[in-house]
């Protein structure tokens, strides 16, 4: 009997999720015992045509990382969806939009204008926009179209399982694969991580006082962080209380606050709103001026509270009048 066929693919991603697979180290051999990798552009030489040639549903599973930003990524997501029995959103970008999703703070026009015309690093003659179609040396060249917004995988195609993390830890990855291959896989739609917030497994949990209130907020580079004490108790925004556990509190272990990569628990629709709600309710100040002074300690609320989940948030993206007007010219 042939082994189940597995594909790995990446879309709008940094490559960290690919590294996470490599980080399985010698354990990857165990994985290879159990499955056949038939598609993994980063590591092995396969072509898109190899996949197109397969019958629909021929792949047991595809682990797709990265957000969907362009027409090409969307096309690949559709293709792999069709060919796979199980499509797994692997990593924060595929699960929630991830760091690339922060681009949703701006409209596509704003992004293109800045990157190709206004960025201070551009030389005078470099200020031109790439075109979707162009000609070079007598060849027609085509570029993928950039979407209006960055999307999480499930905002483009139906997703069967989610493995969160930036990147998912090797342990989580292994367990997810084992669970998939088991005789009793979890119900479709499951997030293959605990549904309890990170504090539950945080080694600093006991050092958090029960009467914490924030006089102000500091960013990690602004203070010398105590390596034992709850980071929130030190006035640093730690997203642990509003983020799924399962990572083993790795960032906290490195003396850095949780920045939220595992996304919210299943009971929360909007990770940023909830983080904001709990943090701000506990500000010490009782007057508007004092409150605002404390809030100044979080200079980029959107980037702080939605670092990995902006496309999956309730508002999803910049909805300004300008951004809305741009849509009409789509």
């Amino acid at each position: 009997m042939s082994k189940p066929k597995i594909a790995f693919y990446w879309c709008a991603a940094c490559g960290g999720c690919e590294e996470a697979v490599v980080d399985l180290a010698e354990d990857i051999l165990g994985v290879l015992d159990a499955v056949d990798i038939v598609f993994w552009p980063v590591a092995m030489d396969f072509k898109k045509s190899d996949i197109t040639a397969l019958p629909d549903g021929a792949l047991f599973a595809t682990l797709l990382n990265g957000a969907i930003r362009s027409s090409e990524q969307e096309e690949m997501a559709q293709l792999l969806r069709r060919k796979s029995q199980h499509l797994i959103a692997y990593g924060a970008c595929a699960c929630h939009g991830g760091v690339p999703g922060l681009a949703n703070q701006f409209s596509r026009e704003q992004l293109l204008r800045f990157v190709y015309e206004e960025a201070p690093t551009l030389g005078e003659d470099g200020r031109s926009r790439p075109q979707l179609e162009s000609e070079a040396n007598g060849h027609e060249l085509e570029l993928p179209r950039l979407h209006q917004a960055v999307r999480a995988l499930d905002q483009v195609v139906p997703v069967d399982y989610y493995v969160p993390g930036c990147p998912p830890t090797p342990k989580l990855t292994q367990e997810a694969l084992a669970m998939l291959l088991s005789s009793n896989p979890p119900p479709r739609g499951s997030v293959l991580a605990p549904d309890t917030a990170l504090c539950d497994e945080c080694p600093r949990k006991s050092s958090k006082p029960s009467d914490l209130s924030f006089a102000g907020f500091r960013r990690p580079h602004e203070i010398l962080l105590d390596p034992e004490k709850c980071l929130l108790a030190q006035g640093v925004v730690c997203c642990g209380p509003g983020t799924r556990g399962g990572c083993g509190a790795l960032c906290v272990g490195g003396n850095m606050p949780c920045s939220g990569c595992f996304g919210p628990t299943s009971r929360v629709r909007d990770q940023g709103a909830k983080l904001l709600s709990s943090l701000c309710a506990n500000i010490a100040a009782k007057d508007e001026a004092g409150i605002n002074l404390a809030l100044d300690g979080i200079p980029d609320p959107l980037g702080t509270f939605y670092r990995y989940a902006l496309p999956h948030s309730i508002l999803q993206r910049n909805v300004s009048q300008a951004a809305r007007a741009e849509t009409l010219s789509l």
Binding site: L276, A281, N292, Q321
Partner: peptide
């Protein structure tokens, strides 16, 4: 009030008047 003050800042980033 505390939440609202922050929410207003965040909504501005979302482009909401």
């Amino acid at each position: 009030l505390r939440r609202f003050q922050m929410l207003k800042r965040m909504l501005a980033e979302f482009g909401i008047e």
